[in-house]
Design a protein around this nucleic acid. Sequence first.
DNA 1: CCACATTTGTAGCGACCACTACATATCTGG
DNA 2: CCAGATATGTAGTGGTCGCTACAAATGTGG
Lengths: 199, 199
Amino acid sequence: MGMGRPREFDAETALDRAMEVFWRHGYEGATIAQLTEAMAINPPSLYACFGNKEGLLKAALDRYTKLRGVWMDEVVAAPTARDVAERMLMGIADKQTDPANPPGCLLVQGGIACGTGSENVPFELATRRAQNEDQLRDRFVRAKAEGDLKPTSDPAALARYVSAVSVGMGVMASSGADREALRQVASVAVQAVEAQSGS
Amino acid sequence: MGMGRPREFDAETALDRAMEVFWRHGYEGATIAQLTEAMAINPPSLYACFGNKEGLLKAALDRYTKLRGVWMDEVVAAPTARDVAERMLMGIADKQTDPANPPGCLLVQGGIACGTGSENVPFELATRRAQNEDQLRDRFVRAKAEGDLKPTSDPAALARYVSAVSVGMGVMASSGADREALRQVASVAVQAVEAQSGS
DNA sequence: CCACATTTGTAGCGACCACTACATATCTGG
DNA sequence: CCAGATATGTAGTGGTCGCTACAAATGTGG
């Protein structure tokens, strides 16, 4: 018995193309026709490989968070809570205005509000954003233990705050805000973390 | 010559219903069938009154920003820049988790990413968000002139920052964050404004 | 070279979308 | 009571959506 005809496209590069379409148009705004054209394949290949449109989104989200995870590891490696916040928010200011990528963040842009039948897409996005926040919280817990943050500070609240600012910057970027505007926001935002630093 | 049959529904209450549908499902996620059912009218009445789907959205956005404008006037009436920020962000924490309304903010929830053919919907939302930011900036300019903010502070950057945090909170709320979580974010965010206070 | 497994491209499926033609109903001005 | 004007409800329109049946193409094991 044979092993069948091998696929003629590379799944990872196809995912990268799909990721960009979701990133730019959102989940419901992206059509199968756009996706297959960007991926340079035909619908049956898409469905054989990813199941359906939502499966393709999940695969794209996984790839996105995996790539961002590498960067987040560098972020939380900063020496102090303040530096973590600065590195993250300034990095976001740069990344979300990088013309190499669609503006904003896929985890926001992908689709906040969805129509009936796609209710769990926002949930998928929120879950992945929460992972980021957890990583940040763990880092701030450590900062508090090390005396880098005040004993009265709330690491979870700080993490939520930095995460919220990130999301806000993502929406700004998708609305056309330039890098300087985002850096201003990041710069001010860091001051709140700074206010919780020292003993 | 007669003046024709009078309309049997109240346009404002119908608009309120439509606003809620857009708020909950986004622009593209909201269908004409859902809208007409919520408004308790039939499609021809909708099109005769609002032109088309996008016209209905604009009317809903105008009504939304008008209602919020009243509240924003109270916000910028706070005595100091810090109090403006606190009143605004804490107010948002409450409003965006009020079960009487859909979670989040219509100007974000309405639709960040849209499909081909609706590209100007995100623009409409961003424009109305910018109006809010302008109002905030004017207030911070005054605060700086009054010595309430440091001479080195940047009112425009502060306004952008508060606006960005608001948007971030809106996305959090639409993802199911509770009031306490939003208040924590607001509380931390105010500290950055506080860092620019005094001389 | 053959039987089998899998992919690929074409072509089109039913469902739903925003939107509207049309006949009917309900008003005002004369 | 009548003529003109506008609103309403029914019942669709063409177009696009996500998705798939099917046959041809391309691989492997015997």
